[in-house]
Design a protein around this nucleic acid. Structure first.
Lengths: 219, 219, 219, 219
DNA sequence: AATGAATGAGCCTTCATTCAT
DNA sequence: GATGAATGAAGGCTCATTCAT
């Protein structure tokens, strides 16, 4: 049995630096960079007021680390499991399903919230998030759409990608507002599967690879 | 004719309160509530440092008024010109075109930016914006979609509305990031008309009221 | 009788800015720039902690202003009353007497202390002090010595000036230490006149314009 | 032969305590007590941040030790080589020459700088410096002057000593300022010998034991 | 009605110091 | 004996706010 000392916890309870990172993620996500105070973060982490300076240098570097840490929590976006040999429609189906699910029911809502905040007005830590998190997904989607729309030019592919992403991101960026407009219950009833199914079908239908939502049409 | 005094301008140049409101809109839009300082706002408005408290009570009330003022600048969203007797497809076409254009090329970018910021994390002034600006649009869209999808249940209509709005909002909420991912020129080349056309067609195709983007399909 | 309101004192009691300047002079002189705290200065001035920032911008600018203010208190060094037509020996006599007196019994010991401190390690505010306070005196002395030592080269004049100034400055820079070495009473007994007389005579004797201190000599 | 361990260096490379002392001397001399940080000192010494407290108790005691160490580096001031049997004029010549040289071209400028700093506002460590460094010199000078000025009273001897010391100290305390006033080159051109010669001659002339600087005179 | 002076709470940061190895 | 982690006190500074015209 391993000996156990005070300053070397049994590896299951995180050290001060980890606690600080977690607390920072929470507080920055909730309040934003400026409105968050290092005092609150330290209190939440059970750490000393000087701990931020000690571990991270200053508030801003803590913020950057918190954002980097957040995109770790969310799971590597570029590595959506899409078999390269699958037919394009299947690729798109998987991509959209994964993306919609991650936005609507993320593994770590706090982490995602922090990242979205940084994206909302890109600044101190936008670079990492874009490079490591968003760009891979964007390029993967573009590749799929090029397969799926062989005759389309770059602009069409680009805007189609925006239509796909716009649908997925809606559930992250605007659901709180939607809850204010419609009954909260009505919105809350939308489970991740239903959302994913809808976005997949809407998109495939728009691209002519599934039946449209409104039944037969004049098209 | 009585000479004009400083405190009673000849009605064409705005008074201190109006200038303050305009400056607040700008600064709050740019920096957010916490990071904006009343000093900067007053300086931008050419007003005294005490003017904010004198005219608005405190910083927060100024913020609320600035947001309210912003949704005035943007034009009343509920009053999109849609003839009630028009066929549903035409109604949707007009709605989407108007919405996409307003998001992608707003009359007052600053005002819209401020409102979107408040929507991003709803708080102090969300109520007004939602009630007077967003809800009317949301209800109008829902009505159109109900006409267009007679057999659909509430949830389907709701999610379809989200798909429409998601596409439109993308161009407001995520274009800066898109510019970081793709070449800035490629993104900047998307004019308001092209965007509106694309969203209209994508949506109508998804609903079976226009030819799909990908040409023939198995549907 | 003039009315008297709280915020408009009768012109004999100084305003907050003046009190701040006086307190800063005192505290900076006593402790040095780094060790002095704006809190102590404000307390001493009966002013708010934010007053320094309000009136002077920051601690450093307050320091600079305090030093500038100090050389005002000390009296303009360049304007020693020396009749241009007086014989050189008389000019030197007056110069040395004035300088020795000012160093040994300054009008404002605090102001002088602050200036000497800044001279001891020249930094933030050395420029003003040198230009407006020391340089005029140095040039005046050099001119006198050139008259007095017609055949001397620049280097001799320079070093002779240093010998004069060194004697005068000793009483400012090293008297506290001298008090530690010899009995404090012995040192304190040196009044300004005695000091001035001594330095004048020592210097004139060295230059061959007065009898040497040691009586007859082999020279 | 036993291998050396880290904590017992082979006597030619200094241990942590010595390195700390040397670094402290440097940093304290450069910045002063308050502005110097133990971090910088430890970094400069290649020692741990806790080393100061471990070896010296706290920052202040380290300072005191550094000053004490400094007066060791400078060479024992009391032991100027002056043959007791030499004629008084020769004694003074040697004393002044030695003192002027040590001030103008010290063996360890850093050590001297630190000591002068402490003398400038005597405090924590002034006692040692005065007792072991300055007092012996002062008493030696006084003795010489008493021989040289048999009829003079204590006050005259005291002030004459001040005139001698003032000239020597000038080159330590005020040369940086002199460089700001006159051309830096002009001042830098003064080598130790020239300075020593000048001070010796100026002093001896003032005391009637050498020809005055200004040639013949009315004396 | 409108303003410039002045304020105090609170922020981020730095620093010497200590504690537990 | 010597060290790296961690701490709390205190520093300078900013900011929204108020007061007395």
């Amino acid at each position: 049995m391993p000996r156990r000392v005070a300053s070397a916890p049994p590896a299951d309870e995180p050290g001060a630096k980890e606690r600080l990172l977690a607390a920072a993620q929470e507080v920055f996500a909730e309040r934003g960079f400026k409105a968050a105070t290092v005092r609150e973060i330290c209190r939440a982490a059970g750490a000393n007021i000087a701990a931020v300076n000690y571990y991270f240098g200053d508030k801003e570097q803590l913020y950057v680390e918190a954002v980097k840490h957040a995109h770790t929590c969310t799971g590597p976006m570029g590595e959506i499991d899409i078999p390269p040999a699958a037919p394009p429609v299947e690729k798109l189906r998987r991509f959209v399903r994964e993306m919609a699910t991650r936005m609507h029911a993320p593994a770590s809502p706090t982490a995602l919230k922090l990242m979205m905040r940084e994206m909302a007005d890109p600044g101190r830590a936008a670079g990492v998030v874009v490079t490591e998190f968003i760009q891979p997904a964007a390029f993967a989607l573009r590749a799929i759409l090029r397969e799926l729309l062989p005759g389309a030019d770059d602009r069409q592919v680009l805007m189609t990608g925006f239509s796909v992403m716009g649908q997925c991101l809606f559930y992250r960026q605007n659901l709180p507002v939607a809850e204010l407009i419609f009954s909260k219950d009505e919105v809350a009833a939308l489970d991740a599967d239903a959302v994913a199914d809808h976005v997949v079908r809407f998109t495939l239908a728009a691209l002519g690879h599934a039946a449209p939502l409104g039944g037969e049409s004049k098209a």
